[in-house]
Computed example of a mutant assay.
Amino acid sequence: MRQLEGIKILLVDDEESILQFLELGLGNEGAIIKTATNGEAAISIAGAFKPHIVVLDVMMPQLNGFDTCQRLKENGNNIAIIMLTAKDDVADRVQGLRLGADDYLVKPFSFSELLARIHARIRNQFPMLLSAVRYGDFTLDDRRKEIKLGEEVLELSPTEYELLKLLLANHGSVLSKTVILDKVWGYDFGGEQNIVEVYVRSLREKLGDKEHRIIRTLRGAGYRMDL
């Protein structure tokens, strides 16, 4: 199953090598791709193409990513914008988010991380476009609130489902207990961080992950799901 079948993505970057790499990778996932090497071209293409997702570089000549983001959002397009930046600058991230960006990635980034961010944006803004998403041997159907391992439907509590969904969507990346608590239990959760360990242990039992090869513990850092 190709995970992005029918999803329209506009890639905007003045580096041809990055455009080619992302176009190939996302195209192999089934996405419909258009590319632009500058902001003005991106705005023109978006008007007719009507992308679901725009992957937008910040540092471009002429019209930069911030101005492009603002104009795309002002045009009333229902799009999700993921901005790319070459530096991990909090001020840049804040500015982009204030102008309407939906997410941020710092270069260099892994393709799997970008793919996970794209899926997150689709689930949030275009859930009707995704019936089921494959992550290795797992199949996640968010409309049915169901996760399969192989052909077997996992018997999960609502909290276990949300935790496993978070780990799957961010597979390959380390998630701290603080991030997990915020995403699954909510920022105002008043309990102990140990609750994360309890639920991870329960998930491992249901996945038959006795060796902790699927959900790995990185001491002092958090958890990483490997597929």
Rank of each mutant, 00 (worst) to 15 (best):
E151W: 05
A169C: 01
P127F: 07
R201H: 15
K210L: 10
T178C: 04
Y161K: 03
Y161W: 06
R143A: 11
P127Y: 09
V133W: 10
A132G: 05
E155S: 13
E205N: 12
D209N: 13
K210E: 15
E205A: 12
V198C: 08
K210Y: 09
E205W: 02
Y161H: 10
V133S: 12
L207V: 04
L154I: 01
G208I: 04
K183M: 12
L154D: 06
G136L: 09
L168C: 04
Y187C: 02
L129D: 10
G172W: 00
E192M: 04
G186N: 11
E152Y: 01
Y161R: 04
Y135R: 08
E151P: 01
L130Q: 13
G186L: 05
R201I: 06
N170V: 01
V200W: 11
D182Y: 08
R134K: 12
K165D: 03
K206L: 01
R134G: 09
Y199C: 06
T159D: 13
I147L: 05
Y187H: 15
L130G: 00
F138W: 06
L129F: 07
F138R: 05
Y135Q: 03
K148F: 06
G191Y: 12
W185Q: 08
L168A: 01
I195E: 15
D209W: 12
G186F: 06
K148R: 14
R143P: 00
K210D: 11
K183W: 09
F138C: 01
L140K: 07
E152Q: 12
E155P: 02
I180N: 11
K183N: 14
S176R: 09
L164M: 10
G190L: 14
E152V: 06
E146A: 06
A169T: 08
L129R: 14
D209F: 12
K177E: 15
A169E: 09
R144D: 14
R144H: 14
L203A: 02
Q193A: 11
S173G: 03
Y199K: 15
R144C: 09
K177M: 08
K183I: 00
E211G: 03
V133D: 11
W185N: 05
K165W: 03
A132V: 03
G190H: 13
E197A: 13
H171Y: 02
L175Q: 14
L163Y: 07
G150R: 02
E151F: 05
H212R: 15
E160L: 13
G136D: 11
D182P: 00
N170R: 14
S157A: 05
K183F: 07
R201T: 14
N170A: 05
L156H: 08
L149A: 04
V184A: 05
D209G: 12
R143E: 09
L203I: 10
L181Q: 15
V200Q: 13
L168F: 01
L167E: 04
Y161L: 04
S173R: 08
V184Y: 13
L168R: 00
V184F: 08
R204H: 07
P127L: 05
G150S: 04
T139F: 14
P158A: 03
I180K: 12
H171R: 10
V198G: 01
L140G: 02
G186P: 11
V179W: 05
S202A: 15
Y135E: 10
L207R: 12
V196G: 08
K183A: 15
R144S: 13
H212D: 14
E205P: 00
E160P: 07
S176Y: 03
E155Q: 13
I195C: 09
V133E: 11
G136Y: 07
R134I: 00
K145P: 00
L140M: 15
D137C: 03
L168V: 05
